[in-house]
Simulated assay, not measured.
Amino acid sequence: MTDVGISAFPIQTGFRVRQVDLGRDGSASTIGVARWLGDARERLRLRRAERFLAAGRFEPFQILFVSQSFERLAPVGSVGTDVEVHTGVRRIGRTSFTYGHAVFAGGERVGSGEATVVLGGAAGPLALPDELIADLTDLRLSESDQEASPRPGAERRRRDRYTHFLPLRARIGDVDLNQHVNSVELAGWYDEAVAAFTVRAIGEGDGRRLPDLPPWSYRIQYSGEVTYPGDYEIGLSVLSFDADSVRYELGVFRGDECLGVADATGPRGELPDSSLA
């Protein structure tokens, strides 16, 4: 995620940290940051596009993620702390566009992220209407980067790529207006898989406090629908590690079908070499 100056972002949205945003360390979690970014996008008003769609001049569609990424750069304090999400548009294509975000608290940059979106019709992605392109152009970041991140290769969607699996069942509370598991809830599934791995790696039941090593960054790609009802598995492998951090590869599976993958980086803590190798 390219570091763009605060003055480049045309839209600012204010939030206050809530209890649901906090991690076990008492500060806002990486998933909490992802929730703020999603809420900031929900509040954006795209006036030309809204009038065009209200007139019924566009075929039925769903707003779908192609990918998103988010990271926590610094701890954000307790409940009630004021944060600001600054939003702009990095890239505009014919069938997709990409938001860019920066999160600030007390004048310090504490998070960032991106999200690439398509309008999905019955036959696949739809060409963006001119009215939407005009709205997005008004939000274009003056310092935006034009090159999209490469999508993971087909090998990432194979079950045998992953060495650990965590079964999960979709809950009705996970489902959004598109009848899919919400993107923030799905990110939480990846967090669950990392937590389960670290608990197994360090060991539990020996009187020590359970490890708290959630990733501080995610890059997520979507390739299928995660819906309710449904039973799923999150696959996890360790890609690399050093003295301070661990890089994970993750995938969400329904049987042998991979519905999306993620790359995550988090703290190493007490994770032993034997569990990471």
Rank of each mutant, 00 (worst) to 15 (best):
R24V: 04
R24D: 06
R24F: 03
D25R: 04
G26Q: 09
G26M: 07
A28S: 09
A28T: 13
S29W: 08
T30M: 02
G32S: 05
V33H: 05
V33T: 04
A34W: 00
R35H: 03
W36L: 01
W36K: 01
G38W: 00
D39H: 00
R41F: 00
R41C: 01
R47P: 09
E50N: 05
R51F: 01
F52D: 05
L53V: 06
A55G: 08
A55Q: 08
A55C: 03
R57N: 00
F58E: 01
P60G: 02
P60E: 00
Q62S: 03
Q62G: 05
L64W: 02
L64H: 02
E71I: 04
R72M: 12
P75D: 13
S78Q: 12
S78G: 14
V79S: 14
V79T: 15
G80C: 12
D82Y: 11
V85R: 07
H86S: 15
H86Q: 14
V89Y: 13
R90W: 13
R91W: 09
G93M: 10
G93V: 07
G93A: 13
T95S: 15
S96E: 09
Y99E: 02
V110E: 10
G111L: 09
G113P: 07
G113S: 08
E114C: 06
A115Q: 12
A115K: 10
L119I: 04
G120F: 14
G121N: 11
G124V: 02
P125G: 05
A127K: 15
L128E: 12
E131T: 04
D135H: 07
D135M: 08
T137N: 09
R140A: 12
L141M: 11
